[in-house]
Design a protein around this nucleic acid. Structure first.
Lengths: 244, 244
DNA sequence: ATCGGTCTGTACACAAATGTACCGAAGCTC
DNA sequence: GAGCTTCGGTACATTTGTGTACAGACCGAT
């Protein structure tokens, strides 16, 4: 399902972009760019991790899956992060499901090569991954609390804003998929989405969502959006930005 | 509020107990045992981390706190873990509040000394902390999903079981404190607790809870208890157990 | 142009948790 | 042992979300 492209251009992942030139060159030669379609399942819960991914334009979703198949997003991963962080922690499996939520490109590397890379002396990779771990843990914790304390509407607004940060105004997702992500019933999403539409904050039809007013959405969202974002900014303020 | 004791005996924390003898001796000399009372706030959100704690009989709670003061537990930390993991990640502050949920002892070490310890070549400490990080991330994710998908009653049962694993049958907590932990309203706890009491699973009065039937509670709890526990067993199966 | 599948709007009975309030009882202090 | 504080039981109206069902609308494929 994944299409290797011929010539890796400049990677557009913030972690890769932040590597110093030595480790960068070395890692780059082992990275392969792939284009991933919406809905592709990268890992099932418990799967062995064969590849680690550095998202570029693609956005992934880490989902906690219950025995009955219900899912809730633990956190999205875009070009600020890495998919397969478990390898860094010394594991070779992942407890969460990983799916593609926004089709696009990512750089992938064989898990074994990634491990070698981590062991190499001069890499700043561990340093970056430590910081990302912090970020992820903070985000997951905030999500846990958000799931308990905030309304569907607030959470939807939060989530749309997070996606907006990744992909800009246009989002290709159905209400159904969003419901799976937020762990709620589909009509629940439709209802809140309709409200946002009527208030002119978003527009949509059949899987195409346009975000019209960030400000409006921010007013609807719970504080969690801001908290997570600020934590990210704080941790990664010194990293080079990706222009894309 | 914390009382240093004179003579550290054998530490009863699993991470410490798992250290090889070289790093163990070195670390031990820098650890100080403290007795912590119920309710003591170790860190406020955003606080600078002065000390890292290795819980022994004490149990801590990592709480995500909202702007209005509402709290939800992100995860408990007992003698299997460490309080102040952020230092390992390279941070010097913590995003979550940390409070003592079960009074008892812990070993503490100055954050700076702990950092030095991490840098020392021969320590297996990083290895252990990586594994604990995995555990924590998995637990937090599961909690996030649990908060969304499972009923108050299921969550209360899960939480009582987790506490049972730490402290055995007797638990010293009011409904009010449990409500803060689970991020729900106090009467909600009272209602479910009463149900459990009537079914003979627990007993309680004024802040003293006795757990009478693990089996019964397990039947009431959601799968999350089991999932988290199994993940822990899987990750730490090879560590020496603490007899206490 | 038609068909079929997918996506969204809507409805309704129901369950679960909320917010709030009040009372009695247990335990602590003096 | 009197009084205060804390803790737990209970009630009730309200909100939020669930589960389920169905219909209309849109889109792509034949």
């Amino acid at each position: 399902m994944s299409t290797p492209s011929s010539q890796p251009q400049q990677p557009e992942n913030r972690i890769i972009a932040a590597l110093n030139s030595t480790s960068y060159q070395h890692l780059l030669s082992q990275l392969e760019r792939v284009t991933l379609p919406l809905g592709e399942v990268i890992y099932e819960p418990g799967d062995h991790i064969d590849y680690v991914y550095f998202p570029e334009t693609a956005v992934f979703s880490m989902l906690c899956m219950m025995e009955n198949g219900d899912t809730v997003e633990v956190g999205p991963v875009g070009r600020e992060g890495i998919v397969g962080l478990n390898i860094f922690f010394g594991a070779n499996t992942t407890p969460t499901e990983l799916v593609v939520h926004v089709a696009g490109t990512a750089m992938k590397i064989k898990a074994e090569l990634f491990r070698q890379e981590l062991r190499s002396e001069r890499s700043v990779l561990p340093h970056l991954l430590f910081r990302y771990s912090q970020m992820l843990l903070a985000m997951t914790g905030q999500c846990a609390a958000c799931n308990k304390l905030h309304s569907l509407e607030q959470q939807l607004a939060r989530w749309l804003l997070m996606m907006h940060d990744y992909v800009g105004n246009e989002l290709l997702l159905t209400h159904d998929l969003i419901a799976l992500t937020l762990g709620v019933r589909r009509p629940g999403i439709s209802e809140s989405a309709l409200l946002f539409k009527q208030e002119g904050l978003i527009n949509y039809q059949r899987g195409h969502i346009q975000m019209l007013s960030r400000q409006g959405l921010e007013a609807k969202a719970c504080e969690c959006y801001r908290v997570i974002r600020e934590e990210y900014e704080r941790l990664f303020a010194d990293l080079p930005r990706i222009s894309a």
